[in-house]
Write a protein that binds this DNA or RNA. Structure first.
Lengths: 254, 254
DNA sequence: TCAATCAAAATGTCAGGACAATCGGACTTC
DNA sequence: GAAGTCCGATTGTCCTGACATTTTGATTGA
């Protein structure tokens, strides 16, 4: 009788480069992830025990554990005491990153287009001021964009940002997404508070998105914070539900 | 001039119980989280360096690091090399757990009620079979529930489950949520693939939710997997947008 | 034949040490 | 006075070693 799938790591060609500035645990995690991605590590198969794996690679066990743990956090592996580490069976894709609509569309090969309709500075309303943590009436950026895919309007994006953080150039806003712009300006995004709902289109919204008045729209409201806790962006987005829905993978925190 | 907020951990009363079966790093993490929760550790304040903290508690540095890391993963702390570990400033609540609507409502103090309208066994349609990973026509559970809050209908929940996993008792379904039922049956939830959208209510949906035909509805479709990769539940839910929206906190993966 | 016990295997927890990389402020220099 | 440089503080990475806990399967016993 053939043995069950045990130790399929032997012919994986795992190796680490100690002269690289990339941390060893990270190198190992990347290689394991790549092996899973290309099917060399099949779902459900065991990974072989940590101690032997460490010995084979010339690494210490904590380093190997750190690599494995990072993949467990990503949902790619499952560890069970007394059993071993298994490749997860299901089709994990991405565990819901803080990604921009632009990146989403680009990843889906949709070649998104952006039309900046408003790019100005306005005094903050009470609501915007509260979200961004500035005083009411204080000046903030206001950007309104229409996002298209295949030439069809898909979403209407209204954003408010505090002044001074970012150089909001209309041309750059049309060439890329807001998040990418913020990251390249040295802002490290940390978290966002989101709310997703639905409502009927107002006349203005219907006109902007080429829908009928009262047609169902998908709405998303978001405030994004950097790692100092500052609010760096507030967004109010409406989507055409026939063209867009929120798709994501959730992981259960053990 | 008073010194900036440095080392506010001194009067925190941190201590660990080595005779407890609870891991030391977990005890420390809980106490730090509680200190943040009650405001003893104020946002933006530094945590004091790991080495001294370890010495003060009689722990090793890796143990202290593990505790801190778990709170970083939760978004409560931020570490910066050369600077220290800071309490995050923003209002992190929950990083989007795989929670059930029932738990959400109960946590909000809404006293949810459930009315089980259908609890039967049906042959799987092609779509359901694909989602659950069974063959088409194979028998599966079908449950339809109406969720109410304050006596008002809030959502209509249609679920399909493979046979044999769970004892789907109508009385228990009305007393608690489906996820809680699964967990108590020994199923360890691992991940879920979700899709959130919107559409106009069909006549049947409008009738069930006391809305007008064509009124905007918020929709959620989900397949949940356990840690062996089996699909354990498929759900098709519709929500009244005036009564419910999805609220969650996202963390950026570094 | 079935159940209880035991042992091997694997991950979980914890310790202590060493050096590297980075940030910020203080100091020096122009 | 302003700019560049150095240095201390702090986290990041990595190592070795030890024991605890849990699961699984084999052995033993009724």
């Amino acid at each position: 009788m053939p043995k069950p799938d045990v130790d399929p790591t032997a012919p994986l060609g795992l190796r680490v480069d100690r002269s690289s500035p990339v941390p060893l645990y990270f190198q190992l995690a990347q290689q394991l992830e790549a092996a899973i991605e290309r099917g060399a590590l099949t779902p459900g198969s065991l990974l072989g025990n940590e101690i032997e794996l460490a010995a084979r690679l010339g690494l210490s066990r904590p380093t190997v554990r750190q690599a494995i743990q990072s993949l467990v956090d990503k949902g790619l592996l499952v560890r069970r005491r007394g059993v071993g580490t298994q490749v997860v069976h299901s089709q994990v894709k991405r565990p819901l990153e803080l990604s921009s609509l632009y990146d989403d569309l680009e990843a889906a090969g949709q070649r998104p287009a952006t039309r900046v309709l408003v790019n100005t500075i306005v005094p903050a309303t009470a609501e915007i001021a509260a979200a961004l943590g500035v005083t009411e009436g204080h000046d903030v950026h206001r950007v309104e964009r229409l996002r298209l895919a295949h030439g069809e309007p898909m979403a209407y994006l209204t954003n408010h940002l505090p002044l001074g953080l970012l150089d909001l150039d209309t041309a750059r806003l049309e060439a890329t997404g807001l998040y990418r712009l913020m990251r390249s300006a040295g802002i490290t995004l940390h978290s966002a508070r989101q709310s997703i709902g639905a409502r009927g289109a107002t006349p203005a919204e219907a006109d902007r998105l080429a829908e009928a008045e009262g047609a169902p729209l998908l709405t998303m409201r978001r405030v994004t914070f950097d790692d100092t806790g500052r609010a760096v962006e507030q967004g109010d987005h409406t989507y055409r539900p026939a063209r867009y829905s929120f798709e994501f993978q959730l992981l259960v925190r053990p």
